[in-house]
Design a protein around this nucleic acid. Structure first.
Length: 216
DNA sequence: ACCCAGGGTCATA
DNA sequence: TATGACCATGGG
């Protein structure tokens, strides 16, 4: 079983996803922080709050008081934690000169910089790299582990770096890796949300024939 | 009344 | 390296 086969089946069932949901690269970064262990429906409410407060802007966020920022982030949960993380990320973003300046750096350098920011772990960093800076980085998340684990393609307890490097190596010769990684991660998320949930609905799953845990 | 969600940090062993 | 506590809201 090849990962490209999984991708093809997912794409045939769910179609193109046009991710990330977000108007600008900066909004993508904000969403990546707010969605940490949180349902996207909740993140949407918080982003809407920021938009109506005209705070979808790094410099504007820094000027806002932490208390006000936290209040606007209430719907997305962990609002005190996320207010601090968002503020420090914005401070870095502005200090570094904004999107265009950051975008001139190569991917390993940018990735290391992101990981050095407080509250930015491997998945959040890779969401930002792939969907805001359009770099060919394969994002690993809980859904990726669950799906590939159910398919028997991974054990599930590998470290983040092992999985990411492994996927990027296997897909190294694909022609448009940015577009592929973009769609692949999006398809995994929608597929697991709809079908491969904690209680799977394997009857309506395009991968049922190749999925060991779908056999009854 | 549960369980779950597109993680990350920190303390501990 | 690996586990556990903690952060918190909203939908099923």
């Amino acid at each position: 079983m090849r990962f490209t086969t999984v991708y093809r089946k997912l794409y045939r069932q769910h179609g193109p996803q046009h991710w990330w949901p977000g108007e600008t690269p900066f909004e993508v970064m904000v969403g990546a922080v707010l969605t940490q262990n949180t349902a996207w429906s909740n993140v949407e409410k918080a982003i809407a709050n920021l938009r109506s407060a005209r705070l979808l802007d790094a410099a504007a966020i820094i000027r806002t008081s932490p208390a006000r920022l936290a209040k606007l982030l209430t719907p997305s949960g962990y609002f005190n934690v996320k207010a601090r993380r968002l503020r420090s990320l914005c401070a870095w973003y502005v200090e570094q000169g904004g999107f265009d300046a950051l975008n001139r750096r190569d991917t390993p350098c940018l990735r290391a910089e992101l990981l050095a920011q407080h509250g930015i772990g491997p998945e959040t960093a890779d969401d930002i790299l792939l969907y805001a800076f359009e770099r060919p980085v394969f994002v690993i998340d809980a859904y990726t582990r669950r799906l590939f684990g159910r398919l028997g393609l991974i054990a599930g307890n590998e470290t983040y770096e092992v999985l990411r490097a492994g996927m990027e190596r296997r897909l190294a010769r694909s022609d448009d890796r940015i577009a592929l990684f973009n769609e692949f991660h999006a398809l995994i998320v929608v597929h697991v949300k709809d079908i491969c949930r904690p209680r799977p609905r394997c009857d309506s799953c395009c991968l049922a024939r190749i999925c060991p845990s779908a056999q009854k």
